[in-house]
Design a protein around this nucleic acid. Sequence first.
DNA 1: ATGTCGATACTTTATCGA
Length: 260
Amino acid sequence: MKIATWNINGIKARIEGAKTWLAAASPDIACLQEIKCVDEAFPADAFEALGYNVSVHGQKGFNGVALLSKLPFDEVALRLAGDEEDLQARYLEAVVSVPSGVLRVVNIYLPNGNPVGTEKFAYKLAWMRRLRERVKALLELEEPLIIAGDFNVIPAPDDVYNPDAWIDDALFRPETRAHFQSLVNLGLTDAFRACHDEPHRYTFWDYQAGAWQKNRGLRIDHLLLSPQAADRLVKCEIDAAPRAWEKPSDHVPIWLELTL
DNA sequence: ATGTCGATACTTTATCGA
């Protein structure tokens, strides 16, 4: 079973690229972030035509996540527990049935948090604490579980082209990295790092200043696995090719294969 | 290099978020 995550940076602007990539890569489940549209505007029919069931949690203009699955959804949850007043569309959790039992997928668009020192950074850290609480509860189910998405976290200095230039950024602040480590320390496996130890492998290149051409990127899109999922991990790859396409997202897909 | 992109609005050029 192949599971992918991709911050597409606007589904209206990216529908052709998304269809092209999905048709070629054919993941069984795809987690999309930053769809930047309301539920009614999401082009579900285009993905249904490719064989996907579609679940959307959108909002006007910003954020927004969607789950595409060739397997039907048994359960869907659209909110991250812990703050009833948080209305930002950044979370979508689903359960599907697989031959070995169930697979649970949590699709997240974790807050960016810049600039540091503002309420945005406080919101990011609070959101990470809420995510940790949810994941802690889910791990007690002892199921294959994947937390996938745009984490807006650079886990280590080897995951950024120039760590010194990023030390004051919300994606790389010590507090951010500590919160991410605390999440992983619940017993999760970073699927990409379980399969690859080479430094400077990226999932994002800024649109500005020729970042893609100069390979000045960040590894901020992640697939974290429960022990039951990690035991079944076969491979995990970043597909950087779409970054060179016409009208690209600034992120590229990352996917993994599990034996389920 | 203040270098780009996507969405929005009392739109045709600004603003915001990333």
